[in-house]
Design a protein around this nucleic acid. Structure first.
Length: 477
RNA sequence: GGUCCCAUCGUCUAAUGGUUAGGACAUCACCCUUUCACGGUGGUAAUAUGGGUUCAAGUCCCGUUGGGAUCACCA
């Protein structure tokens, strides 16, 4: 069987992490099959929620992570159009056909009337009086121009059963199913209907979606049944949570894909991390490229319980990816963050070399390098370091010694500076750290910096180095 | 409230009914080291709960508790 999956987002202007993970699983399921197809369909049947430019965000995100679709609104395909609003008349045709087949009926009740009659607390369902209308009568009223919706008809008794690839066999009583609207009074279909029609017409073999659809799936199966269509394989996946109680959502202001990228997370790391939220490879490995995931992904190893999105672990993983970057790649990513926050001209390659091994996100760069422009106010207490065995008085001596030595140095390379200061320590019967540590503090004013004393000296240059040491000596006097 | 789903370290997770319940992040300690990181070594830390089935239960069954979902002319 040729596998066909679809990613069917509604264009609400935001690609959240749970959505992206669903797309990833859909993509991986399709690509496990050499001939599998991953389809992009835009579900814009709710005109009220449409956001301008939202489709572009979807395109951009999918492309950025390398999840290329085989059919979609922009590239077409044999089953188009791939935007639901462009398929409006199609749904209406099928909806009327479903009425003829007995799977649905015309309903003339207003939304208010329907709402009034039911009571969720007391579990009283809406009993549609229009169900009793004869088809002829209903058709007459429709022809007369009376506003109407098409509502699903559910007369079955007993339990509905279906198999889910993740959750196993699901049984739900037909009594629990409500006769939802399939075609709205504005002529647009609801998700419930458009989805079934499209998934069938587009020959989708595996429907992958959030597990909130588990209990409504029997309704969709009823529609397939009325039309005489074969239902797809269902793969319901658990939600991605913000914490134990809440899903990740736009309303909570939770991070979206684009937010994370803006903070300096690599798309590859994000994909890798979210693949592992609800799925595992069955061994202890956890760093995977998209290509590797394609090879090893399997529905059988999908989890049933919700997973909390842990930014701390993503951050760690991002650090792993940053470390694997080549020097040139790292520089490309880091450059805007460096140039955007640093006034002083430094050798960007030298800077990148000290930055790359200790960065977890590119967004950390400004805080890490701010001292290069200007030494922040600091307390002389910083010179007191137990491990380095330094105190203020010793540091002052170390700085004076370093100053006079460095004034004579012309080869301002890291290797040479390190050799000079190391020799200086030796000559004075001091440990390396007793020279290096005070110098680093004098140059940076910070307890922790990317790079050590000599690396910083190289970055800011000889003149600035000597100046900062002089200032520090005065501060210690 | 009805129905459905879920339940292993703080977090993500592994474990054909038989393991000292494993790994990763986080955390702690140590090593490395010109600071901090990186890297390395080690430690703390979990089967929600009560019954049952079984020689043997994290694993199977039932109850309880806790959490989530759903019950829209939203998807």
């Amino acid at each position: 069987m040729k596998i066909r999956t679809r990613f069917a987002p509604s264009p609400t202007g935001y690609m959240h992490i749970g959505n992206l993970r669903t797309a990833l699983y859909e993509y991986l399921i399709a690509k496990a099959d050499a001939e599998g197809k991953f389809i992009l369909r835009i579900e814009d049947t709710d005109q009220k929620r449409y956001v301008e430019g939202a489709t572009e965000i979807i395109y951009k995100t999918l492309k950025r992570v390398g999840m290329n679709w085989d059919e979609g609104p922009d590239i077409g395909g044999d089953f188009g159009p791939y935007v639901q609003s462009e398929r409006k008349t199609l749904y209406a045709e099928y909806a009327h056909k479903l009425v003829e087949l007995g799977g649905a009926h015309y309903c003339f009740c207003s939304k208010e009337e329907a709402d009034e009659e039911k009571d969720e607390e007391q579990n009283i369902k809406f009993e549609d009086p229009c169900k009793k209308l004869s088809l002829e009568d209903a058709k007459r009223r429709v022809a007369a121009g009376e506003p109407y919706v098409i509502r699903q008809t559910i007369n079955k008794q007993g339990k509905s059963k279906y198999h889910d690839e993740v959750y196993g066999d699901i049984e739900i009583d037909y009594d629990e199913l409500d006769e939802g609207v399939l075609l709205k009074s504005d002529g647009f279909p609801t998700y419930n209907f458009a989805n079934v029609v499209d998934d069938h017409l587009m020959e989708i073999t595996h429907v992958v979606r959030g597990n909130e659809y588990i209990s409504s799936t029997p309704k969709y199966n009823l529609i397939y049944e009325s039309f005489g269509w074969t239902p797809p394989h269902y793969v319901h996946v658990p939600p991605v949570m913000k914490d134990a109680q809440h899903k990740l959502s736009k309303r909570n202001g939770d991070a979206s894909f684009q937010d994370l990228v803006a903070k300096g997370y690599l798309p590859e790391a994000i994909i890798n991390y979210i693949a592992l939220l609800g799925w595992n490879p069955g061994n202890d490995e956890e760093i995977f490229s998209l290509d590797e995931l394609k090879k090893i992904f399997s529905v059988e190893r999908l989890n049933r319980s919700p997973a909390i999105f842990d930014i701390v672990k993503l951050t760690w993983m991002n650090g792993q990816y940053i470390r694997k970057l080549s020097e040139a790649e790292f520089l490309d990513y880091a450059r805007p963050y460096i140039e955007g926050s640093l006034k002083r001209k430094v050798d960007i390659q030298d800077l990148c070399r000290v930055l790359q091994p200790r960065l977890e996100t590119f967004g950390d760069i400004p805080n890490q390098i701010d001292f290069l422009d200007e030494v922040p106010n600091y307390d002389n207490e910083l010179y007191v370091n137990k491990k380095m065995k330094t105190d203020e008085a010793m540091s002052k001596t170390a700085l004076e010694l370093s100053l006079s030595r460095l004034e004579t140095v012309s080869d301002w390379s890291n290797d040479n500076l390190f050799a000079e200061l190391k020799a200086l320590a030796e000559e004075n019967g001091m440990k390396n750290g007793q020279i290096m540590y005070p110098v680093r503090i004098a140059l940076s004013g910070k307890a922790a910096t990317p790079g050590g004393a000599t690396e910083i000296a190289v970055l800011i240059g000889k003149a600035e180095t000597l100046q900062r040491i002089k200032t520090a000596i005065e501060k210690l006097s």
